[in-house]
Amino acid sequence: MSEKRPPEVKRRDNRAWWLVLPVVLSVAFTAVIPLMTVVNYSVQDVFSPNDRIFVGLEWFRDVTRDPEVRAAFGRTLLFSAQVLLVEIPLGVAIAATMPRHGRVAVPAALVVVALPLLIPWNVVGTIWQIFARPDIGLGGWAVNRVPGVNFNYTLDATDAWITVLVMDVWHWTPLVALLAYAGLRSIPDPYFQAAQIDGASAWATFRHVQLPRLRGVLTIAILLRFMDSFMIYTEPFVVTGGGPGNATSFLSILLSKIAVGQFDLGPAGAFSLLYFLVVQIACYVFFTVLTRSGR
């Protein structure tokens, strides 16, 4: 109808970008500036606020070679791996057994499952610190009733590790379960009916109907649980304080010891940056691998 060619440009309203400004500013104050301070520390030897010398990458070399840091890194990695191995399948299993329909059953199940998530982290630590004690704690006392078991997390390294792990599972599996439950609820009924008709076992139904449709939420669950567990601090700090010995000294606990306890700002800065980098890279790798495999 019209002879002239319409202009091949995109006209979009770009004014909305101004709305991002407050976020940029607050992130700058809360994250970027402190991070720069840390970078600044990491390349200097700080004797006092007015007395510091530039040392280049020396702290980074020191930190990566420090056997204590290496041991803590291995410990944290092992802890995260165990957390993922237990919490993801367990959370999905809980979600799969939660009711799909029902006016009373569904909200009731949701409240029960979500309960641990509502408790503040340090309170969780306190609860478990007492609960797991062999003398006055119900959990510790009960475990010691089993013949042949001598449980005491303040003395035994393995017991301490198990206590922290079980506590994390208790605290955070509900998050995985809720995410997985939301994913499962979005699957229309006919998929389950078709699986019944096809004679699929409960496992086959889970494997071919539910799991493929949980990919998205599980990606998020794995990322969240990895980051959180890799940076765990409050709970072991409250329960075991990193001990006995160094048995539950995770990276974060070691870091705070170096930074706050010994006031070695330079190594602590280098440590923080490396820590930060490892988490970033791991998350990126997880995310890429998990989303790619879905195609």
Binding site: P6, P7, E8, V9, K10, R11, R12
Partner: peptide, 9 residues
């Protein structure tokens, strides 16, 4: 106006 065209008016 729910979808901006790549070209045209």
């Amino acid at each position: 106006g729910l979808h901006p065209p790549d070209a045209g008016r």
